[in-house]
Amino acid sequence: MSDTAIRPRIEQAGLADRLTAALPILLVPMLALLGFAAIGDATTWLTLTVAGLAMGLMIFVMASGLTVVFGLMDVINFGHGAFVSVGAFVGFTALAWMGGWTASPSVVLNLAAVFLAICAAALVTGAMGYAFERVIVMPVYGHHLKQILVTMGGLIVTQQLIHVIWGPDAIHLARPETLRGSVIVAGAAIEKYRIMAVGIGLALFLAMRYVLRSTRIGLLVRAGVENGEMVEALGYRIKRLFLMVFIAGSALAGLGGVMWGLYQETITAHMGSEILVLVFIVVIIGGLGSVEGCFIGALLVGLLSNYTAFLAPKIALVSTIGLMVVILMWRPQGLFPVVKAK
């Protein structure tokens, strides 16, 4: 048998096909251009775009775990928002302990404080993710209805526990000294914190991409998303893999919670369930189970929210729903549909 006879015809993929494949990625710059046309003022646009990217990247950090968890085990965690809230509150406590560092005018000490707060939040929510998976999720594998109900119950209980520990009132979460205020870039005022949020978000995205593409664990996760049964038949315990992903996803949600809390500067026990709405919109737009889709979806939602918040503030959230509806009409499985063997 000759190889040429059965060579796949990848070379023949035409320009149109490649353009279609790249279209979801092109949506982000397209939306940015559209925003520019609608706003018409370069400096305002730049401010809003950076804000949108920062928001999108933070949502991505919070949403990424949720989407992989779904892809791997068909589990959707309605309690995911609980990790965001807990992360924010742990971050608050950690920053309060490091009051000397956050109040200091030194950039290094400020960043170190944020870094440590983020680590503390990720550690706590990661451990919580472990408990959540073992106690709440594990008994209801394969049963969607119970999963939704039970994880919702976990959310209620967690929110109440936050009330027990930190009290029922909203808490002001101050940014460290040097992360307050804005810098002027090309005439546009850009909050320093947003620049940092973009930096952290991008770094996390790249790290996640590296893990998923170049490590054995990452390959197993991707293989498991497509065909978990075959991964088991090769000798790997998918439930162990799932537990690891669940913990990582919870830790990321907690990490995102600190970032989101510092962004809003106010934290409440309900902040997680509020942000969960955007997180759901993002993972639906991206395609349930797809990390790339989640990334693109988060950027689209972040940009659109900020543009509409400026242009027509009343319909900011409705516009993201509109975006979701339009995208689902175009691609019913989301921008990056996940290939499922079964």
Binding site: F70, I76, F78, H144, L145, Q147, I148, E274, L276, V277, F280, I281, V283, I284, L288, K314, I315, A316, L317, V318, T320, I321, M324
Partner: peptide
């Protein structure tokens, strides 16, 4: 079913905000 739960959550929140 999961999809329906997520979509309704999003729509209901948006409606409440609106």
């Amino acid at each position: 079913a999961i999809f329906f739960a997520m979509v309704t959550l999003a729509i209901a929140s948006a409606f409440a905000v609106l």
